[in-house]
């Protein structure tokens, strides 16, 4: 095995202007420029993108799924944040 491995990069692609970048996978590359070039070859062989972001995987900090319950709990009991919480008379129509 070689001593120095290329780091892992997460790849995000904007499929067309007007849409956000979306995570598509990862790849190994020595630096960010090579990561973008490799991402073009690995993830965009059929015009899947107009823009590429790469981020070192090690730099991503993610929430802990075992704590999802408490993290997202606060939103659950605030049903009044949804439009369906309110009864609007039929006569009013669409609101």
């Amino acid at each position: 095995m070689s001593k120095k491995n290329w780091p892992l990069w997460e790849v995000f692609i904007r499929s067309k202007n007007g849409l956000s970048h979306k995570h598509v996978g990862s790849l190994h590359a020595a630096d960010e420029e090579m990561a973008v070039e490799n991402a073009r070859d690995v993830y965009c062989r059929r015009s899947e993108g107009v823009s590429i972001w790469v981020v070192k995987s090690a730099d991503i900090f993610a929430s802990d799924p075992s704590k999802s319950e408490e993290l997202f709990e606060t939103a659950k009991n605030k049903i009044y944040r949804h439009p369906t919480f309110y009864d609007i008379p039929k006569e009013i129509g669409h609101m």
Binding site: L8, G25, S26, D41, V42, R45
Partner: peptide
């Protein structure tokens, strides 16, 4: 050529998926 290049791409998507399980590509 395009087909063989696709196979390389497929291998890479899959290595990428395997790595999410905590094993390195190396």
């Amino acid at each position: 050529l395009a087909k063989v290049q696709d196979e390389a791409g497929h291998g890479l998507y899959l290595y990428s998926a395997a790595e999410t399980l905590g094993i390195d590509r190396e």
